[in-house]
Amino acid sequence: MEHVEAVVVGGGQSGLATAHALVRAGLKPVVLEASDRAAGSWPHYYDSLTLFSPARFSALPGIPFGGDLDRHPHRDEVVAYLTACADRLQADIRTGQRVIAVRADGSGFTVELEGGGRLSARAVVAASGSFGRPHRPDLPGLETFAGQVLHAADYRSPTPFAGQRVAVVGAGNSAVQIAAELARESRTSLATRTPVKFARQHLLGKDLHFWLTRTGLDTAPLGHLLKNPPAPPVLDDGRYRAALTAGAPDRRPMFTRLTGDRVTWDDGTTERLDALILATGYRPHLPYLAGLDGILDPAGHPRHRGGASPAHPGLAFVGLEWQRSLSSNTLRGVGRDAARAARRLAAHLAPAS
């Protein structure tokens, strides 16, 4: 069995930020990424996705985006950027290495890989994100709905839905973006439990992220205070509010039932529905930690405080939504949480070094 100092599970934005921070803290991390490249979930997002924050606010520590810093990078630009970041890091990044279990082993951990490989690590950082665990809400009739059902994780473009009747469930950025582009190819409704909340992309001539940074709201350590963190509003330069106002897509209260291939709306009307797209978010994807006592709650969510595991001091989390702040699971904010985790782990390992 190979013995290493620290294992980082996941080679996306969280894993790369963590590897950078661990190296700066004097540790030698091994990054284990299940896919064939260190770009996380970004290659799998829908084709038209662009960052909600400008390039100048969207870089990992020490590696800025190139080009116009006021642009909003496209999905493929982010993939290329993360791949370049991985190439520049002085860390052992191993792709095609899926972690299936982490087990306590004396003062450290045994990390088991798909295919039978094992590593012994003094510290482990869970940075695998949430894309692998799309959330499917319990909607009446969903399991027997005869139309097509897919999560936003599986959506790529509006072309396959041309001419169809489509409903998108959700009120966040991805839901509104997907519904708006679908409406150009199909008759699309956005089904939400509450009206869509918008935030202006620009205030007083500056991008909203400038003000979040300037005021400190982006980094305020509020995560442990919020039992039910608020859903962020839809960032909009005016186009999405205008699309909803024009009814393309139209926004409707959540339907009451799906029966066969039909949907029943809250006003009692029914109609045939070809496809339902769930833009309903994700949950932490941490099945490899299920064998560690005291780590996950019954719903599979990690028990932590600011990313630190109270049950195992050698275990940390990076990239969780609202781990510490509003920006914890974003390109612009994950580096701060990674640095904090690295400092804590370096201090934990110091007596044994």
Rank of each mutant, 00 (worst) to 15 (best):
Q164I: 01
G172D: 13
G163Q: 09
N173C: 15
A152H: 06
N173E: 08
L150E: 08
G163W: 10
A162F: 11
G172A: 15
Q177L: 10
N173D: 14
I178S: 03
V168S: 04
Q164S: 08
A162R: 15
D154C: 01
V166F: 01
R156D: 10
A153C: 07
A171T: 09
L150Y: 12
R165K: 13
F161I: 02
V166L: 00
F161A: 01
V168M: 05
A152L: 11
L150N: 08
F161R: 01
A171V: 08
V149Q: 14
T159N: 07
S174M: 09
N173G: 13
V166C: 00
S174V: 07
N173A: 15
A162I: 10
I178N: 00
P158N: 09
Y155N: 07
L150H: 10
A152C: 13
A171Q: 03
V166K: 00
D154Q: 15
V176C: 12
D154R: 12
V169N: 03
G163K: 10
A167V: 06
D154G: 05
G170Q: 00
S157H: 11
G147W: 06
A162K: 12
Q148C: 07
P160A: 13
P158I: 03
T159E: 12
G172H: 11
I178P: 01
L150R: 11
D154L: 10
S157M: 06
P160I: 12
A167Q: 02
P158Y: 02
A175E: 04
L150S: 04
H151Y: 08
P160M: 14
F161H: 02
A171P: 00
A162C: 09
R165H: 14
P160Y: 13
A167H: 02
N173F: 12
V176H: 03
G163S: 09
G172M: 13
R156L: 13
H151D: 06
P160H: 15
A162Q: 11
G147M: 12
R165W: 04
R165S: 15
S157F: 03
I178K: 02
L150K: 09
